[in-house]
Amino acid sequence: MILETNRLEYLYSSGQTIRFPDLKIRVGDRVLVTGRSGCGKTTFLNLIAGVLKIQKGEIDLIGNRFSSLRPTSLDQIRADHIGYVFQTLNLIPFLSVLENVRLGIQFSHQRTSKAPEIEPEISRILSALGLPKNILNRQISNLSIGQQQRVACARALLGKPELFLADEPTSSLDPKSTTEFVQELINTFDPSKQAILIVSHDPSMVPFFNTVIELDN
């Protein structure tokens, strides 16, 4: 078992409370969380990534119970086991593609050990995601949004973290590119060691996943 959530609830400052369904993710799973805007998809993902502090309920990620971890330990757990593609991508604009992707394993010995030759590995992931080879040394600010999304995915996939999380990774892609992108992503991830959890409101993605959870409060 990679991830298990139990009775997660989140109280917003507006006073609205969202109860999330219990989730169990095993190696090889491809899970899609859908739902209309504002139903708490991103909050759910942020809780699972340890980016938001859990208020009620529990998350267990490969034996680590989030409620008992200090923020710094949680940061380390995230660095070691989770590759997260934020909705806003969160790439550092003045760094090159190579440097941004390398950030994915820079703070994790565990993930570094899974990518002994960093540069060839980064090249491999980038080309598997459909990016040209000469992109490595280009600055992020010079890339299109679609290319930036792929770079963010490459950063999350590098070092084979057990759980790959992505928040609306295809939000700015057209339907054709979306299909290509998801196909590339699924081809790149290793189903014998990893699992995928993606949040999206795009119904065209449903066929690529073996579990679909619809959030509806």
Binding site: R78, A79, I92, F107, S108
Partner: peptide, 15 residues
């Protein structure tokens, strides 16, 4: 923002 991204990738306070 830069530091938050670094932290999101696992950078410690010490780093």
């Amino acid at each position: 923002r830069e530091m938050t991204i670094l932290r999101a990738n696992g950078a410690s306070l010490f780093y």
